[in-house]
Simulated scan of single mutants.
Amino acid sequence: MISTLLVANRGEIACRVFRTCAALGIRTVAVHSDADDTALHTRTADAAVRLPGVTPAETYLRGDLVVKAALAAGADAVHPGYGFLSENADFARAVLDAGLTWIGPPPEAIETMASKTRARSLMGIRPPTNVTEADLPVLVKASAGGGGRGMRIVRRLEDLEGELAAARAEAARAFGDGEVFIEPYIEGGRHVEVQVLADTHGTVWTLGTRDCSLQRRHQKVVEEAPAPGLSAALERDLHDLALRAARAVGHQELHGAGADVADGAGGA
């Protein structure tokens, strides 16, 4: 059973996990940069470990330091929150290799989902290979990363090659991976996501929808849950698709020592 949990994150993200841990009777450990020495998440946790440095690259993005902090604080599990190292398969492996429980998808699932082209292929979605006038507008999108980087809307066929080159260059600079793909661009469409949770016994739950349509430069500004205005039938379809996607990549939430008897911690 998990007794002490380190959250490899900061701010509101870490505080939410700490609140859940307090309700479950789990001791908590925060990590912090020098700049966050007196931050709320540092003061909320039962213990805090300093990561020397100021910038995220020196501190919160140093997986080796976070694992050392977990071991030094006597933690038996690590929760990555979201952002920072949460989508880093090497960090997940380092946590498991240290004998700790990793609260998150298995490293293999993280790697699969890190590449949008691999994930889409696994789910049977094939991008168009020969774009014609009838296909326009289309969206050129980076396979790796996110945050609106490596994305271009193409409305004229003669612009396609130039936008592909520009997207590849931007993706390579931002993510170290210049692979891009093309998909139909849906004018006036909504961006709706489904939250999923899984255990180590093959069970996957859907936890409702959220509308992320309000964006600036392809980056989310506000998320509203549950997503408004969805019919019951459409919501069921979205949940079914999310379940299929999670199972296709082997999504689970807990890995490592004690994982089989501590499934509830994944909901923190």
Rank of each mutant, 00 (worst) to 15 (best):
H191R: 09
G188Q: 12
A142F: 10
E223S: 10
P226I: 02
L197W: 01
L234M: 13
S213H: 10
E161T: 13
L207F: 01
S143I: 08
R149I: 03
A172Y: 00
V222P: 10
A169N: 13
D159G: 10
L214E: 15
G162F: 01
G202H: 02
G188E: 13
P228A: 04
V222Q: 14
Q195H: 03
Q215R: 15
A174F: 01
S213N: 14
A166P: 02
C212K: 08
I186D: 12
E158I: 11
G176Y: 02
G150Q: 04
R216Q: 14
L160G: 05
I153T: 10
V194I: 08
K220A: 10
G148T: 09
H218D: 14
A167T: 01
G208Q: 00
G188V: 04
L197R: 02
A142Y: 09
Q219H: 12
F181Q: 06
A172D: 11
G146Q: 06
R168P: 06
V204C: 03
E223W: 10
V192E: 06
R149N: 14
S143A: 15
G148A: 12
R152L: 11
A144I: 04
G229C: 08
L164A: 09
P226Y: 00
G147L: 13
G145H: 06
D159W: 07
S143F: 10
R217L: 10
R236I: 05
A227I: 02
E223R: 09
T209E: 02
Q215E: 15
T206P: 01
L230P: 08
A166Q: 09
V192K: 06
A227G: 05
R149F: 07
E235H: 03
R152K: 14
E235R: 12
A174S: 13
V194R: 03
E158A: 14
L207H: 03
A166M: 05
R173L: 12
Y185M: 08
A172W: 00
I182D: 04
Y185F: 15
H201D: 12
H191S: 12
E223I: 05
A172F: 02
E183H: 06
E224T: 13
G148C: 10
G147N: 11
H191W: 05
P228L: 01
D199E: 03
A144Y: 09
S231T: 14
T203Y: 05
Y185R: 05
V196L: 00
G229P: 08
D211K: 06
R155W: 13
A198Y: 02
S231K: 08
R216T: 15
E170I: 04
R168H: 11
L157Q: 10
A171R: 02
E163C: 11
G188D: 12
T203D: 15
G176L: 02
E235P: 03
S231G: 12
A172S: 15
R156A: 12
L207D: 06
A169H: 07
I186H: 11
V196Q: 02
